[in-house]
Simulated assay, not measured.
Amino acid sequence: MEKPLILVTNDDGITAPGLRALISYMKDIGDVVVVAPDSPQSGMGHAITLDSTLTAKEVIIDPDNTETKEYSCSGTPADCVKLALQVLLTRKPDLCVSGINHGSNASINVIYSGTMSAAIEAGIEGIPAIGFSLCDYSWKANFGTAEKAIKQIVQEALTNGMPKGVVLNVNIPKVTNTPLKGVKICRQARANWKEKFDKRTNPMGKDYYWLTGEFELLDKGEDTDEWALSNGFVSVVPTQFDLTAHHVIQDLNSWNLNE
């Protein structure tokens, strides 16, 4: 039987350790093609390139893995998926996985995430897609702790399929001396970033600003991704890209808009 074709991408760049780990895990499951940004694209959200050209070149990052085709793309994570589906792949992938991101994409972070936007772009095109993130920003993070959960989730997605219009946002807690407690299906926690801009002046006397902030959790529920992560569980949030607030349509229809 033909192996499933898995498109692998990320937002940390094609040389990122998290991506290299995800490639190795996916090789155990199917045929892998990689299309990833040539430089870090964290926080790009669903940006696409409109005012300049895109390039993609085949590269060899891992000399011991020359059987996996890899393309380095000059664009954003969403660009990578678009280019892969429209130009670079010879057949439609059975699954798109994005990550493993260096750092959390739980809660409100999903809005800004290039990792998740790549998965969402695949989902828009009707391809089952999953974004994976490890809650450790270190370039030397131990991604091995996530291997079992990632493979299990991917296998289940390939076996059972995924609902149309939904992609999975998977976050793995940072653990050291204790094993992961399991996997929980969650909702997105209500939270935001309490942001401020640090004003500085460069040697030429010109002011510039550095974005800083603190994560503010506003949700005490025990069914959220943030609760799961803080208690040692992998969080899986089904995420939709239909942004319609369906539950308020009836209320808005009561407005006097046509008089």
Rank of each mutant, 00 (worst) to 15 (best):
T178Q: 09
N256P: 05
Q155L: 14
Q188L: 09
C73T: 07
A47Q: 15
L252Y: 11
H102K: 06
A228E: 13
W210F: 09
E2W: 03
I120S: 05
Y25P: 02
K194Q: 10
L218H: 07
L95N: 03
T53S: 15
S52K: 15
K181V: 02
L22R: 07
I249V: 13
A118L: 07
F241L: 13
S254Y: 01
I153K: 01
F215N: 01
C73M: 14
E70W: 01
R187V: 12
I172A: 09
N160E: 13
C73K: 05
S39V: 11
V175A: 06
T15M: 07
R200Q: 15
E156N: 11
V33D: 02
G30S: 08
A245P: 05
D79E: 11
K206P: 00
S52Y: 15
Y208P: 10
Q250I: 02
G205S: 14
G144E: 10
C96W: 00
V167M: 03
D225E: 05
W210Y: 06
T244I: 13
G131F: 04
P93E: 05
C80N: 10
L218C: 12
G126C: 08
P63L: 06
N10Y: 08
N256F: 06
Y25L: 08
F197N: 06
M44L: 12
G123R: 01
T55A: 15
T159H: 13
E58R: 15
I130T: 02
F215S: 04
L95M: 05
Y25E: 01
I48Y: 06
N169F: 06
K140V: 03
V236T: 09
K148G: 03
G30N: 08
K174L: 11
T66L: 11
E216T: 00
D207A: 13
S138Y: 00
W193R: 00
T201W: 14
F143T: 04
P17I: 00
V35Y: 04
E58Y: 01
P173F: 11
G18C: 06
V154K: 02
M44Y: 13
D223E: 15
L257P: 00
D219Q: 11
P93L: 02
L243C: 14
I111G: 00
V170F: 03
S113L: 05
I127F: 12
E222Y: 02
V237M: 12
F197L: 12
G114D: 04
N256T: 05
W193L: 04
D136C: 08
D94M: 01
A56Y: 13
K220I: 01
T115N: 14
V34L: 10
V183K: 07
I6Q: 14
M26L: 07
A141V: 09
P4M: 04
G75K: 09
Y137V: 11
S39G: 10
G13V: 09
T145S: 08
D28Y: 00
P179F: 12
D251M: 13
A118N: 01
P203F: 04
I130P: 04
V59F: 06
A118F: 01
G30F: 10
Y208D: 08
S52I: 07
L83T: 14
R20V: 14
I153L: 03
G232H: 08
I6H: 08
L158W: 00
V167F: 05
E70I: 12
P179D: 14
L50A: 12
L243W: 13
Q240C: 14
K148D: 13
V87E: 14
N231H: 15
E214V: 11
